[in-house]
Simulated assay, not measured.
Amino acid sequence: MARNRRLILSPPSTVWDLLADGHRYHEWVTGTQRILGADAHWPQVGAQLRVRVGAGPLTLDDICTVRICEPHRRLELEARAEPFGAARIAMQLVPWGENTLFLLEWHPLRGPGTRMHGLPVDYVASVRNGMMLTKLARIAVREHRGALPRP
């Protein structure tokens, strides 16, 4: 399992707003080229987000399904990219003063990733997820600052 954490210098409500907008995942999820569609009831349990992932001409269509949703606190997705199987992506937002401690876990559920699970795969996932959290933090901070009243 790959685990990452990041202190985001904005409140959980700002971070949650980004998670709750399926059409914005391409802005911060590393490897996402574009959003193909998001269910209108995203991020409610059962809602799906269809994305194209990859690098350059090597692409793959992925479906993320919401498995657990506790608004402003927790979002768990099952990301499925055939023929590579599926993974659990668990995101938790912990209030930390006026900021957010964002906890992210990635764990393969089905497919080749379960057999290759271990140090090399977890390391690559951890690096990717670290880049993703850096992007998410930048966007959340920018949006939080933009929402603050001007003196």
Score class of each variant (00 low, 15 high):
Met1Gln: 11
Ala2Ser: 15
Asn4Lys: 12
Arg5Ser: 15
Arg6Phe: 07
Arg6Val: 03
Arg6Asp: 07
Leu7Gly: 00
Ile8Cys: 05
Ile8Lys: 02
Pro11Ala: 13
Pro12Tyr: 10
Ser13His: 13
Thr14Val: 08
Val15Gly: 04
Trp16Tyr: 06
Asp17Lys: 13
Leu19His: 15
Ala20His: 06
His26Tyr: 11
Glu27Phe: 02
Gly31Arg: 02
Gly31Met: 00
Gln33Asp: 13
Ile35Leu: 09
Ile35Trp: 05
Ala40Cys: 02
His41Ile: 08
Trp42Leu: 02
Pro43Ala: 01
Gln44Val: 09
Gly46Glu: 14
Gly46Tyr: 09
Ala47Pro: 12
Leu49Ser: 08
Arg50Ser: 04
Arg50Trp: 14
Val51Gly: 02
Gly54Phe: 07
Ala55Val: 14
Gly56Arg: 12
Thr59Asp: 11
Leu60Gly: 00
Leu60Met: 14
Leu60His: 11
Leu60Asp: 04
Asp61Arg: 14
Asp62Val: 15
Ile63Asp: 01
Val66Tyr: 05
Val66Leu: 04
Val66Gln: 09
Cys69Gly: 08
Pro71Ala: 12
Arg73Tyr: 09
Arg74Ser: 01
Arg74Lys: 14
Leu75His: 07
Leu75Phe: 10
Leu77Trp: 11
Arg80Ala: 13
Ala86Trp: 09
Ala87Asp: 14
Ala87Met: 10
Ala87Asn: 12
Ile89Phe: 11
Ala90Lys: 06
Ala90Ile: 01
Met91Asp: 06
Met91Gln: 13
Gly97Trp: 02
Glu98Ile: 00
Leu101Val: 03
Leu104Glu: 08
Glu105His: 07
Trp106Glu: 15
Trp106Ser: 05
His107Thr: 12
Leu109Asp: 09
Gly111Lys: 05
Gly113Ala: 08
Thr114Gly: 03
Arg115Ala: 14
Met116Asp: 03
Gly118Glu: 14
Leu119Val: 12
Pro120Lys: 06
Asp122Gln: 06
Tyr123Lys: 00
Ala125Gln: 11
Val127Thr: 11
Val127Tyr: 07
Asn129Asp: 15
Asn129Tyr: 09
Asn129Ala: 10
Asn129Phe: 10
Gly130Asn: 14
Met131Ser: 08
Met132Trp: 01
Leu133Ala: 11
Leu133Tyr: 08
Leu133Val: 04
Leu133Gly: 07
Thr134Ile: 04
Thr134Asp: 15
Thr134Gln: 13
Leu136Pro: 02
Arg138Pro: 00
Ile139Thr: 01
Ile139Leu: 14
Val141Ala: 01
Arg142Pro: 04
His144Arg: 05
Arg145Glu: 07
Gly146His: 10
Gly146Asn: 15
Ala147Asp: 06
Arg150Asn: 07
Pro151Val: 13
